[in-house]
Simulated assay, not measured.
Amino acid sequence: MPSTPYLIEADGLHMHYAVGHRTVPVLRDVSLRIAAGSRVAIAGPSGSGKTSLLLLLAGLEKPSAGQIRVAGADLATLDADGLADLRRGHIGIVFQSFHLLPSLSALDNAALPLRMAGAAGAREAAADMLRRVGLGERLHHRPSELSGGEQQRVAIARALVHRPQLLLADEPTGNLDDATAESVRGLLFSLNRELGTTLVLITHDMDFAARCDRVLRLHDGQLHESQPCRQPEAHDALPA
C-alpha cells in the first residue's frame, strides 16, 4: 500500500519519439498527484498526449525523463516482470477497443487476469463481476454474440475482477452509441463508488470529464488543472 494519500505520483515527465532524424515531443514536464479513491479525467484534443500519459501510468511505456510512483512502487525500478506483477495486483485497464478474445466466453474473458495470476476461484469471481455490470444472463456468450455495449461491460469486468486499486480507462465510450455510452459512464462511476477503485479517465468528451472530481487538460504536451467538477449524478447507478 502507498505510504502517502496519493495512489499516483508523477514528477517531471517528458516523453518524445524519434522520427527519422527529428525528435517529436509528446509530453513536456508533466507532474501530477492523484488521491486514492478519486475520479480524475485527463482531457484534451486528439494527439495531445492523453493515451501516452495513460501508458506511462500503466507501466506500458517508459518516460524519456521523470519519475512515476503507482501504489508506492517506483516504476523505474521495476523490470518487465515486476511491472506485470504491479498491473496484475493493482491496475485494471479499459481501452476504447474492447480487446476481448473471440474464442472465449464472456465468463472466460473476464476471468483471464485471475487465471494468469494463478488465483483460485477465477471463474466464480468473474461471474460475480459480470453480474455487477449487468451481464449475469450473458456469461456463456462469446464476443460475437454480444452488442458493443455488452462487450465493453465484459472489458470493464475483466479490468476490475482482481479488485485493482487503479482503473485506467482510455476513451471507454468512444466506440459506443450515445445511449450505450451513457450507460457505461454511469457504470464506471458506480463501480468507483462501490469498490473504492481510483478512476483515471482519458477522454475528449468534456461532459463526461466534468462528472469527475477533477479535470486535467493536456495541451501541447503540458498538463493544466481545470475547474472543480460536479459529482456524478444520482442516475449513475449499477445495472439492475
Results as ranks from 00 to 15, higher is better:
1 M>T: 09
3 S>N: 14
10 A>R: 10
14 H>I: 12
16 H>A: 12
16 H>N: 09
17 Y>V: 14
20 G>C: 15
26 V>D: 00
34 I>R: 08
38 S>W: 07
38 S>L: 13
39 R>T: 00
41 A>N: 03
45 P>H: 07
47 G>I: 14
53 L>Y: 15
54 L>F: 10
55 L>I: 04
55 L>V: 02
63 P>G: 07
67 Q>Y: 05
73 A>D: 05
75 L>W: 08
78 L>P: 03
81 D>P: 14
83 L>A: 09
84 A>M: 02
85 D>R: 13
86 L>N: 06
88 R>V: 05
93 I>M: 03
94 V>Q: 03
94 V>M: 06
98 F>A: 12
99 H>Q: 12
104 L>E: 11
108 D>L: 08
113 P>N: 00
113 P>Q: 01
113 P>S: 08
114 L>M: 03
114 L>K: 08
115 R>C: 05
115 R>H: 06
116 M>K: 10
119 A>S: 15
120 A>D: 13
121 G>R: 15
124 E>Q: 15
127 A>G: 08
127 A>H: 13
134 G>K: 07
134 G>R: 09
135 L>S: 07
136 G>V: 02
136 G>H: 07
137 E>C: 06
141 H>T: 13
147 S>K: 01
163 R>S: 10
164 P>Q: 10
164 P>C: 11
165 Q>D: 15
167 L>V: 13
174 G>L: 08
175 N>R: 00
177 D>N: 10
179 A>K: 07
180 T>R: 08
181 A>D: 04
184 V>C: 06
185 R>L: 05
186 G>D: 07
187 L>N: 15
194 E>D: 08
195 L>S: 02
196 G>W: 05
201 L>G: 03
202 I>L: 10
205 D>N: 15
207 D>S: 10
209 A>T: 01
212 C>F: 03
215 V>F: 12
218 L>S: 02
220 D>N: 11
222 Q>H: 10
229 C>M: 08
230 R>G: 14
236 D>A: 11
240 A>P: 15
